[in-house]
C-alpha cells in the first residue's frame, strides 16, 4: 500500500497509467472554483439500471406486455454494497408486495417527485450549479430540485419529497446530509422503500475530470436492521451544448390518474 501522500495530484495519474492497482483509488484533485473548492459544476448522469432495481438483477419482462422489448427490464449488477438490503422482517414482506403491485404503487408512475437518492440514478441527467455560497442540484425528471445549504447546518423545517439538504466539504468530497424526507418515495421500480425516518448521507467525489463517485449511506431504523450503502459512478455529459431539457411529466399521467373522471361522450 502506498502512503497517502503519493496518491495525490498528478502523480496518481502516472500510477494509474502504469496499471498499478490500488486497494483505494488514488485521490484525484478536481479543478477548483473561485473560492478553492472542488468544482462539481456540470451535467451528470448515472449509467446503470439501479432505477429498475438497486440490487443485482437479470433481465426480465416489464409489467405491460404491450410494450414488448421497449418495456422490458434491463439487467444490472446492482449498486448496493454486498447486494444485501438489511430489511426488518415485516419490511421485507412489504417490499415484495410493493414489487408485485409496482404499476399501481410506484410513485414514478404518477410523475411524483423522486426523493433522494433515487433522483440521482433515474435515467435522466441532472445538473449541479455550484457557486461559492450555494449548490443547486436540478434534475430533468419532473423539474425536481434541491438547494443544498452550505452554511451552518439547519434542521429540516418540514418533511418534503426531496428532503432538506445540509452540505459541507470533506477534503475532495461534497458531503450532503439529507433529512426531512417523507415516506412517499421509493428507491427504485422494484419496490425498495423507506420510512419517514430515512437519513441519507451522500458523498460526491470527483474521480477524474468527467466522472464522480457517488455514495449514499442509508439509515432508517424503522425499515432496516443496520445502515447500508449504495455506490456508483456518475458520468459527465460531454456533448457540445449539452443541456437539461424539460421533462414535466404531469401531463403524461393525467389520463392514467384522471381518465376515469372524464366526461363520457353523449352525457
Amino acid at each position: 500500500m502506498l502512503p497517502v501522500s503519493c496518491t495525490r495530484g498528478a502523480f496518481a495519474g502516472v500510477l494509474f497509467a502504469a496499471g498499478i492497482s490500488l486497494a483505494q483509488p488514488a485521490i484525484y484533485k478536481a479543478p477548483r472554483t473561485a473560492d478553492g473548492k472542488p468544482d462539481l459544476n456540470g451535467i451528470w448522469q448515472a449509467l446503470n439500471t439501479a432505477n429498475w432495481d438497486i440490487r443485482g438483477h437479470a433481465a426480465a419482462p416489464g409489467p405491460l406486455f404491450q410494450l414488448g422489448a421497449t418495456g422490458a427490464i434491463p439487467p444490472g449488477l446492482g449498486v448496493v454494497e454486498g447486494d444485501d438490503i438489511p430489511y426488518l422482517p415485516e419490511a421485507a414482506a412489504k417490499q415484495k408486495e410493493n414489487s408485485a403491485n409496482r404499476l399501481a404503487l410506484d410513485p414514478e408512475v404518477k410523475c411524483y417527485l423522486p426523493g433522494v437518492p433515487r433522483a440521482t440514478y433515474m435515467p435522466y441527467p441532472f445538473q449541479i450549479v455550484q457557486s461559492d455560497k450555494h449548490i443547486l442540484i436540478s434534475y430533468e425528471y419532473a423539474s425536481a430540485v434541491r438547494i443544498v445549504n452550505m452554511e451552518a447546518p439547519k434542521k429540516a423545517p418540514i418533511d418534503s419529497w426531496m428532503g432538506w439538504s445540509n452540505g459541507h466539504w470533506d477534503g475532495e468530497t461534497l458531503v450532503i446530509d439529507v433529512t426531512g424526507l417523507n415516506d412517499q418515495t421509493w428507491f427504485d421500480r422494484a419496490g425498495n422503500f423507506h420510512s419517514d425516518a430515512l437519513h441519507v448521507t451522500e458523498r460526491y467525489t470527483a474521480r477524474s475530470p468527467d466522472t464522480l463517485t457517488y455514495e449514499a449511506l442509508i439509515e432508517d431504523p424503522k425499515v432496516f436492521s443496520r445502515p447500508w450503502k449504495m455506490s456508483m459512478i456518475l458520468y459527465r455529459h460531454l456533448e457540445p451544448h449539452a443541456q437539461l431539457l424539460e421533462f414535466k411529466c404531469v401531463e403524461f399521467v393525467e389520463e392514467l390518474m384522471y381518465g376515469p373522471l372524464r366526461k363520457k361522450p353523449g352525457k
Binding site: N41, I128, V129, L136, S138, V145, I147
Partner: peptide
C-alpha cells in the same frame, strides 16, 4: 444561483 457559465432561477 450562479455557477460557472450558468445562471439558475428556481
Amino acid at each position: 444561483v450562479q455557477g460557472t457559465g450558468y445562471v439558475a432561477i428556481v
